[in-house]
Simulated assay, not measured.
Amino acid sequence: MDHNQRGVQFLQEGNLEEAAKAFNEAINENPRDPAAYINFGHVLSELGETDKALKFYQRAIEIDENAAAAYYSAGNLYFSNDRFQQAKKMFEEAMKRGMETSDNYFMLGLTLMNLEQGKFALAYLQRSVELNGTDAEARFQYGLCLAQLELLDQAMEQFEKCLEIDPNHSDAYYNLGVSYAFKEQADKAIDMFNKALEIQPDHLLAGHAKQLIEANQ
């Protein structure tokens, strides 16, 4: 097992100190190996050292401009720090370099939704669920995007598929409730809100929506 492999094992075990040592050894042994810099970036990311992690991802890109994993990893860091324009650029760069994974499509779609570009996000979220139909959160976000574009029937279909995968997804129940409310099916809406509240008793949106409908019945 080489230094990178040992480091990945330590990282998966949550042993960040040993992981950092292993990746540092990998860099010293082969300073032109982009994977070692990407992996060290992951350790720094886990430690909350965002700026340092980004420097390691950038170093990997300087060594190999086609290191798609470095762009994707940088995109995730930018996204988690609400730097959505920079995240968008990184996910697009990863895609240009061959990273056509469900995760990359999902993150690009989610980034575009945060940039209020739902029409552009839709195709990426759709592709994400095509590539991985068992990802409940991808189904949910795809449904949200459809709902925001007023494609209600298609949105409800995705919320239901999300719940088939994850029966405890309270937000999927809540959004189904909202969809039924829009369709003026109050009883079904209340039933969905109740299910959301059973799973998450402090779901304020579901509680408020239920009260509103009951007050108007």
Rank of each mutant, 00 (worst) to 15 (best):
D2L: 13
N4I: 15
R6F: 09
R6Y: 14
Q12M: 11
G14D: 07
G14E: 05
N15M: 07
L16N: 02
N24I: 05
I27H: 01
N30C: 09
P34A: 10
A35C: 12
A36E: 02
I38P: 05
F40C: 02
L44I: 12
T50N: 03
A53E: 06
L54D: 11
K55G: 10
F56Q: 04
Y57R: 06
I61Q: 09
E62G: 04
I63S: 05
A68T: 11
A74N: 01
A74K: 10
N76M: 08
D82E: 12
A87V: 05
K88H: 10
M90Q: 13
A94T: 07
S102D: 14
S102E: 13
Y105T: 10
M113T: 09
E116F: 11
K119R: 15
F120P: 00
F120R: 07
A123D: 15
E130C: 07
N132I: 06
Q141S: 03
L146Q: 01
Q148H: 13
L149H: 14
D153H: 09
Q154A: 04
Q158D: 04
K161N: 02
L163G: 07
E164L: 00
D166F: 04
Y173D: 00
N175C: 04
Y180P: 01
E184G: 01
E184N: 11
E184K: 11
A186Y: 13
D191W: 07
M192I: 03
F193P: 06
N194S: 11
P201N: 09
G207V: 01
L212T: 15
N216H: 13
